[in-house]
Design a protein around this nucleic acid. Structure first.
Length: 307
DNA sequence: CGGCTTTGACCTGCGC
DNA sequence: GCGCAGGTCAAAGCCG
């Protein structure tokens, strides 16, 4: 990564107003976090009109930056959380360990069952007290911003909205979605940045335990540009690869850390071709990539590298 | 009729 | 302890 990019990342990560850096020239940007055990990595990427700048790097390779934004904006609070996580290794309140997250999910599910079994006479609204001896632990999460007029971007999976809340200091509500596939506890939150209403902040939590249900190989290249790009179509996501898969891949080799982000954006971008046009995937070793023309728009970089 | 959205109430965590 | 904000639940309603 060039120093110039590092500086930019520092500005972005260290900034308490991440969205301030987002403008029309940043049709897509994101920040993601992959944590496994004590090892954490994070990255920030932008998909610009002329190319993708991948700021992914091992956390500890980052220059010393402030990981504690003084006043994170509500719209990007998630990003702040993600960034702060690895910066507070001594904090046990939040663990991103996958195994723990899974356990938590199971506990959450069991909790609902227990509530029904133990106190069936209570009204539904009077839910039972949850376990208090253990703080809620979250699944690995990552968020990214997308410039779109549509709130809920098609990403190849089916989601069911289960809640919506008004966000403080923002005129735009935050929507909560859950993967409709049974046994899959992936959630995502969608909200619009109040600093720039054209930007949609999507936060994924957890990892899918199943292939994309919306199916395959449909030629979307012919989709009329600017048509909104939202359709139930899709592009075959690199399944059954999971987030863990990418975590491993990411940790094992930083040659192409962007593959991690592909986990989520592959489907997103594939289903919303209008989001990106003439985009090229680049990595830290951007020069290593050849120009694959339009193919690059739809083929993950890690596939293109397999030459 | 099944699946999804809406929406008000409830729960939890956190700061003061 | 209290209040606030975020997150979740689930009944009701909508829609194809």
């Amino acid at each position: 990564m060039e120093r110039k990019e590092m500086i930019k990342m520092e500005e972005l990560v260290g900034s308490s107003s991440f969205t301030d850096h987002i403008s029309d020239s940043y049709p897509f940007s994101g920040i993601f976090d992959f944590s496994e055990g004590e090892k954490s990595s994070l990255g920030f990427m932008e998909l610009l009109g002329t190319g993708v700048q991948d700021y992914t790097s091992p956390l500890f390779d980052l220059p010393p930056i402030s990981m504690a934004p003084s006043a994170p904006l509500p719209a990007v609070k998630e990003c702040s959380e993600v960034l702060n996580q690895p910066a507070t290794p001594n904090s046990s309140s939040i663990s991103s360990a996958s195994s723990e997250a899974v356990n938590d999910t199971e506990q959450t599910n069991n909790k609902a069952v227990d509530q029904e079994e133990e106190q069936p006479d209570k009204t539904k609204k009077q839910l039972k007290p949850k376990k208090t001896n253990q703080k809620r632990q979250r699944e690995p999460r990552f968020a990214f911003m997308t410039k779109s007029e549509v709130d809920h971007l098609e990403d190849g999976y089916r989601w069911r909205k289960y809640g919506q809340k008004a966000v403080k200091n923002s005129p735009f509500p935050r929507s909560y979605y859950r993967c409709t596939t049974a046994s899959c506890n992936v959630k995502k939150r969608v909200e619009r940045s109040f600093t720039d209403p054209t930007i949609v902040v999507t936060t994924y939590e957890g990892q899918h335990t199943h292939p994309s249900p919306v199916m395959p190989r449909q030629n979307f290249a012919g989709a009329p540009p600017g048509s909104g790009g939202v359709s139930a179509t899709s592009f075959t996501m690199p399944m059954p690869r999971t987030l863990s898969h990418y975590q491993q891949q990411h940790q094992q080799s930083l040659i192409n850390p962007l593959t991690a982000s592909n986990f989520a954006i592959n489907g997103l971008l594939a289903n919303n071709p209008g989001l990106l046009r003439d985009t090229r995937f680049c990595t830290q070793g951007a020069a290593l990539l050849k120009d694959h023309g339009l193919l690059q728009d739809i083929v993950p970089s890690y596939m293109l590298k397999e030459e």
